[in-house]
Structure formats: structure tokens, C-alpha cells
Nucleic acid binder design. Structure first.
Length: 669
DNA sequence: AGGCGCACTTTTTTT
DNA sequence: AAGTGCGCCT
């Protein structure tokens, strides 16, 4: 297709954005106003106007979004799109680091994921009680938040976990140990992956000039979700490349990762000179869907200055269904899907949006029961499942005998080997550089089954063929794994061929591992082919940027939107509101909102239970006061008596007024 | 001492 | 599904 016919498909503002002269620009656009279309058109226009495709770098937030943009440009331009790259910030930084090790250093470092990070923190946290130190996963959160927002640990704790400020010193010590161990073991965590590059280009004009010389244009999708660490990457490049950023402040839902839509509101101050364009016409949804979405955002104390104006006109009124419990909610959705299917709709026109991966399980069960084909996106990635990690640990050991975390995981699997033995043994193994020395040491270990060493050796001999090495590892470990995971072994066993397939064609174990640490793949995605007709079951966070004809927003109940635990924290409550906003604005033709709860009855009958967190959850519920005419209401009576409601017992308002002590700054590695 | 099985809770969101 | 805590076994 020619570029002219592409431009003709755009409206005036989209066309202006796509075809403007080279300069820094922010394109502000509401949901469904054609953000992706504009970024695709921009890339296509640049290439058609003699920018080589490989001088354009597109940055997106997920691998899926990145791939989609490139595919759509390719659809327009065919082979002329060759060389166009779209990546996540993380894969982009990794490719820069690998491309020029001399510029960035960190040769031979490997990337660890969240789980590994957690294990390390657990190690340094030790046996401290819940009063002395937060749990390892919270330490991870604090650490990562400080890195992503480029704040001190103290500032992070003050904002996020005031009750821990008085333990600042101990927590700081744990984090310093963590950083030292990372360096010693040549690990990079997710934040390091970005910071290695950011640090270098913000302090070395030569490094910055080199990166800048690679590109003419950097196109950033979903810019409202960029955090200060990511801006640390973009800011120094301003002098050498043109930044074309597309975003929507009302869809900023990654605050927990340090995203701050200041980057949108103050764009012209930190990127200058620059222009700001707006896309205000919504092409996606019928007016009734926009009315509900606009109403929701208008209830916010924040001013988004945003009213979506639709061009599609009227359609069907959104539905609001109330169920007695989650089980009936899930069952009804499955039944409704069956009805639609019988009426001739395709499965793939439907998307079910859940707030948490956990909530997706109940829906999954209902879909399975009715044999409705679905893809689940946003749950636990294939490589994050325990049994796959277990097998991968041997590959990691072979690829890098200094991989302490892999050794610990691998050794602990064997009968008679527990935490103490593993800690002692791994410490010893870290003294050796070579795998063969490690093996010699292991052979000497009394009461070790011979399988331990056998597996390592088999994998070692097959390491040039990653898929075969993986298959061999599975064979060698099958017995112990079957015992470990006997409860649902059959289901887990099916994952191994999928991983084996993904391993095919990778030149080395480390290349294979590196790719999937940064680009998580979900079980269903391996089986899924785009042309296959399936319902999409997805978390709202993963669904950003997507759309479907019919969308179900699930469990829009008090206590869930917003989550009970964030009530009282205005910033977080407003982020929750944006999450719901994102969910509602995915729908093109029909929006079906479902909610559960006996608790709702209590609320609507004006008899909230006294003094509990539940009452507060109900008071702050986003659908309170929704005008009747925006929804078609339906209450589904239960055949069983209502089940006791959730309690609000874990909600405590955060203490206020924190005393400040001198902060240990978290150094960047 | 160290390992292991059992009962128990406990779930935000993602690179 | 995975983490935690507890008590029993070697």
C-alpha cells in the first residue's frame, strides 16, 4: 500500500502528526483516538520520505506492542520496512550493551528476573522477623522503586512504606549487600539493564554521541508510563535524535513501577524545543461506551481535561450485571459468550478484562468447563513457572558456573539436600571458575545421588544445541520433578515441549536465556497462532493499547475498584480509577461490566456494616452514583443464599508524620 | 542439625 | 500456585 493511501486514512490531526517535519513532539491522545495508528503512520511516513528504516527506533512497553507496530508498518511498506526496530526499553538497552561492550562495560553479565532478585534479597534478609525487616518481595519493590524513580531509599520508604523509615539503616544495609553480590556474580537486574546505559550516556558525552549517531528518530509509545529512569535514557539523546512521543495521561497505570505522568504534563519543559499535538476524536467506541468512560474520569479530583468525542455515534447501552458471587459471575460470562457464538459472533471478537491474574483463574475454570477456546495473557509467564525454572537452572549452571542462584535452585531439588547443605556447598562452588572443578567437588559429596552430576554433564555436552540440551535436562530431572510436583504433574509436563520449541535455533544457552528473561512468553502464546479464533482473557495492565468488539470488565465491585488496601491513599486510588478507565475504553461495540457481591445489596439498601473497612470500600467505590441512564442494569439472584462477604480487616490507614534521618544513597552499579 | 511433609494463608499491576 | 510455620524423623 502506498504512503498516500495510508495518509488518506488518517484524520487531519493524525496526518499532521505523522507527516510533520523533524522535531521533538508530544502527541496527546485519548483512548481510541488512534495513537498506535499515528505512530505506525509516522514511521511509515519517515521511511517513505527517505529516512532509512534502521535509523528509526521505536520504544514500546511490551514485546507484543512493539511487534504489532512493526507488523503494521510492514503491512504498509512491505520490504521497505526492513531494518525498522521496535523494542521494549529493556531489550533496546540490552542490544546497545551487547553491540558495544567497550562503551558500556559489563561484559559477561547476565540478566536476572524478579524471582532471582527475590532469592537474593531473601538471602540477605536472613531470618529477621516481620518486625525487623519487610519480606523479601517488599524489599525488591522498595529497591526497584527507588531505582526507577531515581530517589533515595529514604524518600521511597517515606512515600511508600512510612512504617519502615525507622528501619532505614538496616534496610539500607541489606540493599548494599544485594548490590555487592550482584556485582560479584555478574548479575544485572531489570533496573541495572536500563541504568547501565542511562548512567553511561548521561555522564559520557562520547557514549551519548555514539548512541545518538545510530538514530535519527526515536518514537515512544505510551509515554505516560515512562519513569524517571527511562527519561534518564531519553533526555541526553535529545540533541542527536528527534523524540516523537505518544501518550495519554488518563491511561497512566504503571505508577507502581515509578511511572509519573509529569513527563506528559511538563513535556515542553524537559524536551525543548518541542511541539504538542492533540488527537481528540475517538474512532473506537460507540457513544454510550464513551459516556460511561467520560463519566468515570469526570468523577476524579484530578483534572485530565479530557472528554472523549466519538465519531461512531450511538450503539447499544453498556450492561451492568450484579451477581451473588464470583462463581456465578464467571459462569454467566461463559454462558453469554456461548449465546453470542450461536448468534454468529467469532470468539476472537471478545475480551475479558481482569484486574489481577489471580482473578483470571475463576474465569478460566468457567471457560474450560464450557469448552470455550481462550488465550490468557498477563498471568505467570512460562519461564517463571517453578518446574521450568528448575530445568533451566542446569542450563544456567552450564552456561555460567558462577551462577550462584542457579546452583542453589538446582541442588535443592535433590532428596536429602536442604537449605543448609545448599548454602554451604554453593559457597564452596563459587571458589571455582570452571565447571569441571565444580563437578569434581560434587562427586566427592557423600549421599548425593549420581543423577546430580550426570545431568550437568549431559547438558554440558549438548550445549551447542540448546533445544537438545533442554530436552536432556528434562529427561535427567524428570523423576525428581515428578515427585516434587506430583499434584499437577501432567499439566506441568506439557510445558516442557513448548520451552524446547522456543529453545530451537538459539546459538547459545545464554542467548536463549537472555531473550526470555527480558521478553516473557506465556504458555498460551506459544500454542496460540494469530489466525486461531479464541476469546482473549487478559489483565487490564496487559490490555492497554488493545481493543475488541465486545469487552467484559470483570469484578467491578466495591473493594476491588479501588482495591480496599489503597483506600485512603489518593494517588493510588486515582491510579485505580485509571485502570478501570483503561478497561472500559477497550470496547468497540459492546461493554459489559460485571460485579459481585452481597455487599452491594447492603450498600444499595443503605445499611453498610458499621465501622469496618468494608464500609470504606463501599464509600469509595467508583461506580457509586453512576447515573442510571448510562447502564442497562440487571441483578442475577442466586439460587443459593449469599456467602459471607469479604472482610476489610487488613486495611490500616498509613501512619503520618515521619521523622527523617540521614539517608544512605542507593548507589547505581 | 538438617530435612521433609503437612496444614495454613495469601495473592495488584510488569520489564 | 507458592510461601510460611510447625512438628516429626533421620
Amino acid at each position: 500500500m502506498s504512503i498516500n493511501s495510508l495518509l488518506e486514512e488518517l484524520n487531519d490531526s493524525q496526518r499532521a502528526a505523522a507527516s510533520m517535519p523533524a522535531q521533538h513532539a508530544l502527541v496527546l491522545a485519548g483512548a481510541g483516538c488512534g495513537k498506535t495508528k499515528t505512530i505506525v503512520a509516522r514511521a511509515a511516513w519517515l521511511i517513505s520520505n527517505s529516512t532509512p528504516a534502521d535509523r528509526i527506533q521505536i520504544l514500546a512497553f511490551t514485546r507484543r506492542a512493539a511487534n504489532e507496530i512493526v507488523e503494521r508498518v510492514r503491512l504498509q511498506l512491505g520490504d521497505r520496512a526492513n531494518g525498522l526496530r521496535a523494542s521494549t526499553f529493556h531489550t533496546w538497552c540490552t542490544s546497545l550493551r551487547l553491540r558495544a561492550p567497550a562503551v558500556f562495560g559489563y561484559r559477561g553479565f547476565s540478566c536476572i528476573d524478579r524471582e532471582d532478585q527475590n532469592q537474593l534479597f531473601k538471602l540477605f534478609r536472613g531470618k529477621a522477623t516481620a518486625e525487623q525487616l519487610p519480606p523479601a518481595n517488599e524489599l525488591c519493590d522498595f529497591y526497584s522503586f527507588a531505582r526507577n524513580t531515581i530517589q533515595t531509599l529514604e524518600a521511597t520508604l517515606e512515600k511508600d512504606a512510612p512504617k519502615w523509615v525507622k528501619h532505614l539503616e538496616v534496610i539500607g544495609k541489606v540493599m548494599l549487600s544485594y548490590e555487592k553480590r550482584k556485582r560479584d556474580r555478574k548479575y544485572l537486574d531489570y533496573d541495572d539493564v536500563l541504568d547501565v546505559v542511562a548512567q553511561r550516556i548521561s555522564t559520557s558525552p562520547e557514549a551519548c554521541a555514539w548512541v545518538g549517531s545510530l538514530y535519527d528518530h526515536v518514537l515512544v509509545d505510551e509515554v505516560q508510563d515512562t519513569n524517571p529512569l527511562q527519561w534518564k535514557l531519553l533526555t541526553p539523546l535529545q540533541n542527536d535524535v528527534n523524540l516523537f512521543c505518544v501518550g495519554d495521561d488518563a491511561q497512566s497505570i504503571f505508577g507502581f513501577r515509578g511511572a509519573d505522568f509529569w513527563s506528559v504534563h511538563s513535556f515542553s519543559e524537559h524536551v525543548s524545543p518541542s511541539i504538542t499535538l492533540k488527537l481528540e476524536q475517538n474512532y473506537r467506541s460507540t457513544q454510550e461506551i464513551l459516556d460511561v468512560s467520560n463519566w468515570l474520569i469526570s468523577q476524579s479530583p484530578l483534572n485530565y481535561d479530557k472528554t472523549l468525542v466519538g465519531i461512531r455515534g450511538a450503539g447499544r447501552l453498556p450492561q451492568l450485571h450484579t451477581f451473588a458471587n464470583d462463581w456465578e459471575e464467571a459462569r454467566w460470562i461463559a454462558e453469554d459468550l456461548l449465546v453470542r457464538r450461536q448468534e454468529g459472533a467469532l470468539w476472537r471478537e471478545h475480551m475479558i478484562l481482569v484486574r489481577t491474574a489471580y482473578a483470571a483463574r475463576k474465569i478460566e475454570a468457567a471457560l474450560l468447563a464450557k469448552e470455550i477456546p481462550y488465550v490468557l495473557i498477563g498471568g505467570v509467564a512460562l519461564f517463571a513457572t517453578a518446574h521450568v525454572r528448575d530445568v533451566l537452572s542446569v542450563l544456567r549452571i552450564v552456561a555460567n558456573p558462577q551462577d550462584e542462584l542457579a546452583w542453589m535452585r538446582f541442588l535443592k531439588l535433590w532428596p536429602g539436600v536442604g537449605e543448609k547443605t545448599v548454602t554451604r556447598l554453593t559457597e564452596e562452588l563459587m571458589e571455582f571458575e570452571l565447571l569441571d572443578d565444580c563437578i569434581r567437588r560434587l562427586v566427592k559429596e557423600p549421599k548425593f545421588p549420581p543423577g546430580v552430576v550426570e545431568v550437568i554433564e549431559v547438558v554440558k555436552n549438548l550445549q551447542q544445541n540448546v533445544a537438545m540440551a533442554f530436552a536432556a535436562a528434562v529427561r535427567g530431572m524428570q523423576d525428581i520433578l515428578a515427585k516434587e510436583y506430583h499434584l499437577n504433574w501432567d499439566k506441568r509436563l506439557r510445558d516442557f515441549p513448548l520451552v524446547e520449541k522456543l529453545a530451537e535455533g538459539h546459538g547459545s544457552i545464554s542467548a536463549f536465556l537472555e531473550q526470555y528473561v527480558l521478553d516473557p512468553v506465556f504458555e498460551t502464546e506459544v500454542i496460540y497462532k494469530p489466525e486461531v479464533d479464541k476469546v482473549t482473557l487478559i489483565t487490564v495492565h496487559s490490555a492497554k493499547g488493545t481493543e475488541r468488539e465486545v469487552c467484559y470488565a470483570v469484578n467491578v465491585s466495591p473493594g476491588a475498584y479501588p482495591l480496599t488496601r489503597v483506600v485512603g491513599n489518593q494517588e493510588e486510588v486515582e491510579e485505580e480509577r485509571r485502570v478501570l478507565y483503561v478497561a472500559l475504553t477497550r470496547a468497540k461495540d459492546e461493554l459489559i461490566v460485571t460485579r459481585q457481591g452481597y455487599r452491594l445489596w447492603a450498600y444499595e439498601n443503605q445499611t453498610p456494616p458499621d465501622g469496618s473497612g468494608e464500609a470504606e470500600a463501599e464509600e469509595s467505590y467508583f461506580l457509586n452514583g453512576v447515573p442510571d441512564h448510562l447502564f442497562e442494569h440487571q441483578v442475577h439472584q442466586s439460587d443459593k443464599p449469599p456467602i459471607a462477604p469479604l472482610t476489610g480487616k487488613d486495611y490500616e490507614p498509613p501512619p503520618m508524620g515521619i521523622v527523617i534521618s540521614s539517608p544512605p544513597r542507593i548507589p547505581t552499579s
